[in-house]
Protein backbone atom coordinates (compact mmCIF):
# COMPACT_ATOMS: atom_id res chain seq x y z
CA UNK A 1 0.00 0.00 0.00
CA UNK A 2 2.86 2.33 0.91
CA UNK A 3 4.60 1.80 -2.38
CA UNK A 4 1.49 2.20 -4.43
CA UNK A 5 0.46 5.46 -2.85
CA UNK A 6 3.99 6.80 -3.07
CA UNK A 7 4.05 5.99 -6.73
CA UNK A 8 0.71 7.57 -7.52
CA UNK A 9 1.66 10.65 -5.49
CA UNK A 10 4.74 11.04 -7.63
CA UNK A 11 2.75 10.62 -10.80
CA UNK A 12 0.22 13.24 -9.74
CA UNK A 13 2.89 15.58 -8.47
CA UNK A 14 4.53 15.25 -11.85
CA UNK A 15 1.33 16.16 -13.61
CA UNK A 16 1.02 19.19 -11.35
CA UNK A 17 4.43 20.39 -12.44
CA UNK A 18 3.36 20.26 -16.04
CA UNK A 19 0.40 22.50 -15.17
CA UNK A 20 2.83 25.20 -14.10
CA UNK A 21 4.25 26.00 -17.51
CA UNK A 22 7.05 28.49 -17.62
CA UNK A 23 6.00 32.03 -18.48
CA UNK A 24 7.84 35.20 -19.39
CA UNK A 25 5.80 37.84 -17.59
CA UNK A 26 3.49 37.65 -14.62
CA UNK A 27 0.42 39.85 -14.54
CA UNK A 28 -1.65 40.52 -11.43
CA UNK A 29 -5.06 41.89 -12.26
CA UNK A 30 -8.20 42.93 -10.46
CA UNK A 31 -9.97 43.09 -13.75
CA UNK A 32 -12.67 41.00 -15.36
CA UNK A 33 -11.48 37.43 -15.82
CA UNK A 34 -12.70 37.14 -19.40
CA UNK A 35 -10.90 40.29 -20.44
CA UNK A 36 -7.47 39.34 -19.16
CA UNK A 37 -7.75 35.95 -20.83
CA UNK A 38 -8.53 37.52 -24.19
CA UNK A 39 -5.79 40.13 -23.77
CA UNK A 40 -3.09 37.64 -22.83
CA UNK A 41 -4.14 35.16 -25.51
CA UNK A 42 -3.97 37.87 -28.17
CA UNK A 43 -0.69 39.20 -26.78
CA UNK A 44 0.96 35.77 -26.79
CA UNK A 45 -0.33 35.08 -30.30
CA UNK A 46 1.13 38.39 -31.56
CA UNK A 47 4.46 38.45 -29.74
CA UNK A 48 5.18 34.88 -28.66
CA UNK A 49 5.67 36.15 -25.09
CA UNK A 50 4.03 33.85 -22.58
CA UNK A 51 2.11 35.24 -19.62
CA UNK A 52 0.95 34.04 -16.25
CA UNK A 53 -2.04 35.67 -14.62
CA UNK A 54 -3.20 36.01 -11.04
CA UNK A 55 -6.67 37.45 -11.01
CA UNK A 56 -8.59 38.43 -7.88
CA UNK A 57 -10.08 41.48 -6.23
CA UNK A 58 -7.96 44.59 -5.77
CA UNK A 59 -7.71 43.88 -2.05
CA UNK A 60 -6.50 40.32 -2.47
CA UNK A 61 -4.07 41.29 -5.24
CA UNK A 62 -2.63 43.96 -2.94
CA UNK A 63 -2.39 41.53 -0.03
CA UNK A 64 -0.41 39.20 -2.22
CA UNK A 65 1.94 41.93 -3.39
CA UNK A 66 2.47 42.99 0.23
CA UNK A 67 3.17 39.45 1.36
CA UNK A 68 5.55 38.95 -1.54
CA UNK A 69 7.32 42.25 -0.98
CA UNK A 70 10.56 40.56 0.03
CA UNK A 71 10.73 38.72 -3.28
CA UNK A 72 8.33 40.21 -5.81
CA UNK A 73 6.81 37.96 -8.43
CA UNK A 74 4.64 40.48 -10.24
CA UNK A 75 5.77 42.24 -13.42
CA UNK A 76 2.61 44.05 -14.46
CA UNK A 77 -0.24 45.06 -12.18
CA UNK A 78 -3.69 46.07 -13.38
CA UNK A 79 -5.59 47.45 -10.42
CA UNK A 80 -9.15 48.68 -10.14
CA UNK A 81 -8.19 51.73 -8.14
CA UNK A 82 -5.96 54.63 -9.22
CA UNK A 83 -5.10 55.15 -5.58
CA UNK A 84 -2.93 52.01 -5.59
CA UNK A 85 -0.93 53.43 -8.49
CA UNK A 86 -0.34 56.65 -6.54
CA UNK A 87 0.74 54.67 -3.50
CA UNK A 88 3.22 52.49 -5.38
CA UNK A 89 4.57 55.53 -7.22
CA UNK A 90 5.20 57.31 -3.92
CA UNK A 91 7.01 54.27 -2.59
CA UNK A 92 9.16 54.28 -5.71
CA UNK A 93 8.24 50.77 -6.75
CA UNK A 94 7.16 51.53 -10.30
CA UNK A 95 9.02 51.78 -13.57
CA UNK A 96 8.27 54.98 -15.52
CA UNK A 97 6.98 54.18 -18.96
CA UNK A 98 4.96 56.00 -21.55
CA UNK A 99 3.65 53.74 -24.25
CA UNK A 100 3.62 55.06 -27.83
CA UNK A 101 0.04 53.77 -27.98
CA UNK A 102 -0.93 56.04 -25.09
CA UNK A 103 -0.97 59.11 -27.33
CA UNK A 104 -4.76 58.89 -27.67
CA UNK A 105 -5.28 58.38 -23.91
CA UNK A 106 -6.37 61.64 -22.29
CA UNK A 107 -3.87 63.14 -19.84
CA UNK A 108 -5.97 62.57 -16.73
CA UNK A 109 -5.87 58.82 -17.42
CA UNK A 110 -2.09 58.49 -17.46
CA UNK A 111 0.96 59.46 -15.45
CA UNK A 112 4.70 58.83 -15.58
CA UNK A 113 4.27 55.39 -14.14
CA UNK A 114 0.71 54.31 -14.84
CA UNK A 115 -1.79 54.36 -17.65
CA UNK A 116 -5.45 53.34 -17.68
CA UNK A 117 -6.44 50.05 -19.25
CA UNK A 118 -10.05 51.11 -19.27
CA UNK A 119 -12.52 52.97 -17.12
CA UNK A 120 -15.53 51.89 -15.18
CA UNK A 121 -18.10 54.19 -13.66
CA UNK A 122 -20.48 53.77 -10.77
CA UNK A 123 -24.17 53.94 -11.35
CA UNK A 124 -27.53 52.83 -10.04
CA UNK A 125 -28.30 49.27 -11.03
CA UNK A 126 -32.02 48.79 -11.04
CA UNK A 127 -34.10 45.62 -11.43
CA UNK A 128 -36.70 46.40 -14.11
CA UNK A 129 -39.09 43.77 -12.71
CA UNK A 130 -38.91 45.05 -9.17
CA UNK A 131 -42.19 46.96 -9.44
CA UNK A 132 -40.47 50.22 -8.50
CA UNK A 133 -40.31 53.33 -10.64
CA UNK A 134 -37.11 53.75 -12.61
CA UNK A 135 -34.75 55.95 -10.54
CA UNK A 136 -32.99 58.84 -12.23
CA UNK A 137 -30.78 60.18 -9.49
CA UNK A 138 -29.17 59.10 -6.22
CA UNK A 139 -31.74 60.96 -4.16
CA UNK A 140 -34.59 59.03 -5.80
CA UNK A 141 -33.52 55.96 -3.80
CA UNK A 142 -34.52 57.69 -0.57
CA UNK A 143 -38.18 57.69 -1.70
CA UNK A 144 -40.69 55.41 0.06
CA UNK A 145 -41.06 53.20 -3.08
CA UNK A 146 -37.53 51.94 -2.40
CA UNK A 147 -38.09 51.29 1.29
CA UNK A 148 -35.83 48.35 2.31
CA UNK A 149 -34.95 47.72 -1.32
CA UNK A 150 -31.56 49.41 -1.71
CA UNK A 151 -28.08 47.88 -1.36
CA UNK A 152 -24.97 49.98 -0.95
CA UNK A 153 -21.53 48.46 -1.60
CA UNK A 154 -19.30 48.90 1.43
CA UNK A 155 -16.91 51.84 0.81
CA UNK A 156 -14.49 50.11 3.17
CA UNK A 157 -14.21 47.25 0.71
CA UNK A 158 -14.19 49.11 -2.58
CA UNK A 159 -12.02 52.02 -3.59
CA UNK A 160 -14.49 53.45 -6.09
CA UNK A 161 -17.38 53.24 -3.62
CA UNK A 162 -15.27 55.21 -1.20
CA UNK A 163 -14.58 57.86 -3.82
CA UNK A 164 -18.28 58.10 -4.62
CA UNK A 165 -19.20 58.43 -0.97
CA UNK A 166 -16.51 60.99 -0.24
CA UNK A 167 -17.37 63.06 -3.31
CA UNK A 168 -21.09 63.08 -2.58
CA UNK A 169 -20.40 64.01 1.03
CA UNK A 170 -18.02 66.76 -0.09
CA UNK A 171 -20.77 68.12 -2.31
CA UNK A 172 -23.89 67.82 -0.16
CA UNK A 173 -22.89 66.54 3.28
CA UNK A 174 -24.18 63.39 5.00
CA UNK A 175 -27.84 64.16 4.51
CA UNK A 176 -28.33 61.81 1.56
CA UNK A 177 -26.84 58.87 3.42
CA UNK A 178 -28.89 59.55 6.55
CA UNK A 179 -32.04 59.49 4.44
CA UNK A 180 -30.91 56.27 2.76
CA UNK A 181 -30.44 54.69 6.16
CA UNK A 182 -33.86 55.92 7.26
CA UNK A 183 -35.26 54.28 4.14
CA UNK A 184 -33.81 50.89 5.08
CA UNK A 185 -30.85 50.80 2.72
CA UNK A 186 -28.17 48.40 3.84
CA UNK A 187 -24.42 48.04 3.43
CA UNK A 188 -23.99 44.83 1.48
CA UNK A 189 -20.33 43.94 1.32
CA UNK A 190 -18.29 44.24 -1.85
CA UNK A 191 -19.70 44.94 -5.30
CA UNK A 192 -20.83 41.40 -6.11
CA UNK A 193 -22.54 40.99 -2.73
CA UNK A 194 -24.51 44.13 -3.42
CA UNK A 195 -25.43 43.26 -6.97
CA UNK A 196 -26.47 39.60 -6.67
CA UNK A 197 -29.58 40.23 -4.51
CA UNK A 198 -30.77 42.77 -7.06
CA UNK A 199 -30.56 40.14 -9.79
CA UNK A 200 -32.88 37.81 -7.89
CA UNK A 201 -35.14 40.68 -6.93
CA UNK A 202 -34.46 40.66 -3.20
CA UNK A 203 -33.47 44.29 -3.64
CA UNK A 204 -34.59 46.74 -6.28
CA UNK A 205 -31.41 48.75 -6.75
CA UNK A 206 -27.74 49.11 -5.95
CA UNK A 207 -26.60 52.56 -4.94
CA UNK A 208 -23.31 52.95 -6.80
CA UNK A 209 -22.57 49.64 -8.50
CA UNK A 210 -19.68 49.03 -10.88
CA UNK A 211 -21.29 49.52 -14.24
CA UNK A 212 -19.55 47.02 -16.54
CA UNK A 213 -20.41 43.95 -14.43
CA UNK A 214 -24.09 44.91 -14.44
CA UNK A 215 -23.98 45.66 -18.18
CA UNK A 216 -22.50 42.21 -18.76
CA UNK A 217 -25.33 40.61 -16.79
CA UNK A 218 -27.86 42.71 -18.66
CA UNK A 219 -26.38 41.50 -21.94
CA UNK A 220 -26.87 37.92 -20.75
CA UNK A 221 -30.56 38.61 -20.36
CA UNK A 222 -30.89 39.66 -16.72
CA UNK A 223 -33.69 42.20 -16.34
CA UNK A 224 -31.57 45.00 -14.94
CA UNK A 225 -30.58 48.41 -16.14
CA UNK A 226 -27.64 50.70 -15.36
CA UNK A 227 -28.57 54.32 -14.75
CA UNK A 228 -26.00 57.10 -14.50
CA UNK A 229 -27.48 59.70 -12.14
CA UNK A 230 -28.09 63.14 -13.46
CA UNK A 231 -26.31 64.83 -10.57
CA UNK A 232 -23.09 63.07 -11.41
CA UNK A 233 -21.05 60.02 -10.47
CA UNK A 234 -17.43 58.95 -10.15
CA UNK A 235 -15.33 57.02 -12.57
CA UNK A 236 -12.66 54.46 -11.72
CA UNK A 237 -9.83 54.32 -14.21
CA UNK A 238 -8.03 50.96 -13.96
CA UNK A 239 -4.30 51.70 -13.89
CA UNK A 240 -1.69 49.42 -15.46
CA UNK A 241 1.82 49.64 -14.06
CA UNK A 242 5.19 47.93 -14.39
CA UNK A 243 7.25 47.14 -11.29
CA UNK A 244 10.87 48.24 -11.10
CA UNK A 245 11.69 44.84 -9.67
CA UNK A 246 10.57 43.16 -12.90
CA UNK A 247 13.16 40.96 -14.58
CA UNK A 248 11.27 41.23 -17.86
CA UNK A 249 10.76 44.94 -18.34
CA UNK A 250 10.89 44.85 -22.12
CA UNK A 251 8.21 42.18 -22.32
CA UNK A 252 6.15 44.08 -19.75
CA UNK A 253 6.33 47.24 -21.83
CA UNK A 254 5.21 45.27 -24.85
CA UNK A 255 2.21 44.04 -22.90
CA UNK A 256 1.19 47.59 -21.99
CA UNK A 257 1.61 48.54 -25.65
CA UNK A 258 -0.63 45.63 -26.64
CA UNK A 259 -3.42 46.55 -24.22
CA UNK A 260 -3.36 50.11 -25.52
CA UNK A 261 -3.31 48.95 -29.14
CA UNK A 262 -6.48 49.19 -31.18
CA UNK A 263 -6.98 45.44 -30.87
CA UNK A 264 -6.49 45.49 -27.12
CA UNK A 265 -8.75 48.46 -26.58
CA UNK A 266 -11.52 46.81 -28.59
CA UNK A 267 -11.37 43.84 -26.22
CA UNK A 268 -11.64 46.29 -23.32
CA UNK A 269 -14.69 47.86 -24.91
CA UNK A 270 -16.23 44.44 -25.50
CA UNK A 271 -16.39 43.82 -21.72
CA UNK A 272 -18.43 47.04 -21.30
CA UNK A 273 -15.53 48.98 -19.84
CA UNK A 274 -14.88 52.40 -21.34
CA UNK A 275 -11.70 52.15 -23.39
CA UNK A 276 -8.85 54.38 -22.29
CA UNK A 277 -8.25 55.58 -25.85
CA UNK A 278 -10.70 58.16 -27.03
CA UNK A 279 -10.58 56.90 -30.63
CA UNK A 280 -12.05 53.45 -29.85
CA UNK A 281 -15.82 53.18 -30.10
CA UNK A 282 -17.81 51.40 -27.39
CA UNK A 283 -21.38 50.18 -27.12
CA UNK A 284 -22.08 52.07 -23.91
CA UNK A 285 -22.08 55.61 -22.52
CA UNK A 286 -18.59 57.12 -22.47
CA UNK A 287 -16.96 59.62 -20.16
CA UNK A 288 -18.14 62.45 -22.37
CA UNK A 289 -21.74 61.22 -21.91
CA UNK A 290 -21.51 61.20 -18.09
CA UNK A 291 -21.56 63.95 -15.56
CA UNK A 292 -18.43 63.34 -13.47
CA UNK A 293 -18.28 64.45 -9.86
CA UNK A 294 -15.05 66.20 -8.93
CA UNK A 295 -12.84 63.89 -6.86
CA UNK A 296 -10.19 65.69 -4.87
CA UNK A 297 -7.91 62.82 -4.01
CA UNK A 298 -5.61 65.12 -2.05
CA UNK A 299 -8.36 66.03 0.38
CA UNK A 300 -10.49 62.87 0.63
CA UNK A 301 -7.79 60.19 1.14
CA UNK A 302 -6.20 61.75 4.22
CA UNK A 303 -9.68 61.70 5.78
CA UNK A 304 -10.43 58.12 4.70
CA UNK A 305 -10.63 56.57 8.16
CA UNK A 306 -12.76 59.41 9.44
CA UNK A 307 -15.16 59.21 6.48
CA UNK A 308 -15.50 55.46 6.79
CA UNK A 309 -16.19 55.73 10.50
CA UNK A 310 -18.92 58.33 9.94
CA UNK A 311 -20.36 56.17 7.18
CA UNK A 312 -20.42 53.11 9.42
CA UNK A 313 -22.02 55.11 12.21
CA UNK A 314 -24.66 56.49 9.84
CA UNK A 315 -25.68 52.96 8.92
CA UNK A 316 -25.54 51.76 12.48
CA UNK A 317 -22.80 49.20 11.92
Amino acid sequence: MLKKSLLSTLVIAGSLVSVAAHADITIYTAGPAGLIKKLTDGFTADTGIKTDVFQSTTGKVMARIEAEAANPVVDVLISASWDTANDFTQRGLLLPYTSPNAAKVPDFLKSETAVAQGISALGIVWNTKSGTPKPADWADLTRPEYKDLVNIPDPAQSGSSFELTASLVAKDGWDLFKKLNDNGAIIAGANADALNPVLQGAKAAVFGAVDYIAMGSQAKGESIEVIFPASGTVIAPRPMMIFKSSQHQDEARKFIDYVLSEKGQKEVAATYLMPARTDIPADRPLISDLKILPVDAGSIYPKRDETLATFAKTFGK
Binding site: A20, I27, V53, S56, K60, V73, A190, N191, A192, N196
Partner: peptide, 22 residues
Amino acid sequence: ILVAPVGMTTVATFIWRQFEQG
Protein backbone atom coordinates in the same frame (compact mmCIF):
# COMPACT_ATOMS: atom_id res chain seq x y z
CA ILE B 1 -7.59 32.43 -3.10
CA LEU B 2 -4.43 33.71 -1.49
CA VAL B 3 -1.77 31.20 -2.47
CA ALA B 4 -2.94 29.81 -5.81
CA PRO B 5 0.00 30.18 -8.15
CA VAL B 6 -0.41 32.65 -10.95
CA GLY B 7 -2.15 31.10 -13.90
CA MET B 8 -3.84 28.36 -11.89
CA THR B 9 -7.53 28.19 -11.09
CA THR B 10 -9.12 25.71 -8.70
CA VAL B 11 -12.79 24.87 -8.39
CA ALA B 12 -13.23 27.18 -5.43
CA THR B 13 -11.39 30.15 -6.92
CA PHE B 14 -13.31 29.64 -10.15
CA ILE B 15 -16.64 29.75 -8.31
CA TRP B 16 -15.61 32.70 -6.22
CA ARG B 17 -14.50 34.62 -9.31
CA GLN B 18 -17.83 33.94 -11.01
CA PHE B 19 -19.65 35.37 -8.01
CA GLU B 20 -17.35 38.40 -8.01
CA GLN B 21 -18.15 38.96 -11.69
CA GLY B 22 -21.88 38.58 -11.19
